[in-house]
Design a protein around this nucleic acid. Structure first.
Lengths: 185, 185
DNA sequence: GTCTATATTTGGATAGAC
DNA sequence: GTCTATCCAAATATAGAC
């Protein structure tokens, strides 16, 4: 069975994810990843035999898992606006109230491996589909629901960029507050 | 007087800017900058003695200049909605209809020198102020004008991120079309 | 001003001891 | 599973010829 890891997979991926989100794929050096996780470079390679691309993919997988939880309220029995409000709350936690960038933004710059960019795109699609579904449940037509979902994603991503640039997370909070209205009309 | 440059400063900075916007600050390698500009690395260092940070700063300066032109319609005699529509058209050209990311996004990731990130923040403020001014001219109160300007910036930045992630510039065009309404009410 | 050539540092990745 | 030590490639940067 071997030795037990000194750091749990979940917290390790959280630390690595923060580096990727702060620095982007290329900016996330092994040194930075090592420092943030407390593991030496060689240990990271033991955990991720395919190296930095593997770390990025594992981070994206863990983010997908996190989104499983974040999006869960959308398929609950609650009224759509209530469901979206709960999703917004969880989104806020995931982005540390606007202090953490989005992997969709920082890991899709050129230079990142194609598999990483593709996986990020898939994550975006998953998110969009879940938001469109709740918009439909709120009475929107299919094209209108898709439109609202994209508008919601645009609002969130844009607010994260502006929050980072201005070093003020206020705009992100406004985006979260607007989500129920945007999606459920 | 020395020799005349083989590449005009303006087109050189445009090429360098595209690399920074595609790859981010850290991802923009000297090799990539050299390839895109057609100048060898040593020649780039001759033009920019302070190296890559200097290139990034020069790019931001040139972007600020470009924004001088982009924002010029906002202070024209035209009706605010007409002025904003013309600004939107110029913004569309500057972002290559959504195929080019924004320096505010890609050059403000951690790893970029502080002076670069600070300069990007200043550019954002300039843009916000110009948009708030035209919103005021359209009859909005000061706080409402500021709110509209931030909403416009959030919309543009978010649409650029989504356009890149989904590899579909449609969302960016929608954001441009919405600008007059967002700013002038 | 641009080039070829080279120095120096950092980044990604492995080998092998514990 | 983690560590120290090391390798190799790539990145930033400089020197000097043309």
């Amino acid at each position: 069975m071997g030795r037990t890891p000194s750091i749990d997979d979940e917290v390790l991926l959280r630390h690595l994810g923060e580096v990727f989100r702060h620095f982007g794929y290329e900016g996330a050096s092994l040194t930075a990843l090592s420092t943030a996780s407390g593991l030496h470079r060689a240990s990271l390679y033991h955990r991720f035999p395919s190296g930095k691309p593997g770390m990025a993919m594992a981070v994206l997988e863990s983010v997908e898992q996190a989104f499983g939880t974040i999006l869960a309220p959308l398929t609950s029995e609650d009224a759509p606006s209530v469901a979206v409000a709960e999703m917004a709350r969880r989104v806020g936690t995931f982005y540390a109230d606007g202090r953490l960038a989005c992997v969709l933004d920082t890991m899709t710059l050129r230079g990142a491996p194609d598999e990483v960019r593709d996986r990020a795109a898939r994550l975006a699609t998953t998110w969009l589909t879940a938001m469109a579904d709740v918009a439909r449940r709120a009475g929107a037509s299919a094209p209108e629901a898709a439109r609202r979902a994209r508008a919601a994603l645009v609002h969130i991503e844009g607010s994260l960029v502006v929050a980072r640039v201005l070093d003020d997370p206020a705009e992100f909070q406004l985006a979260l507050d607007a989500l129920p209205g945007t999606l459920t009309g």
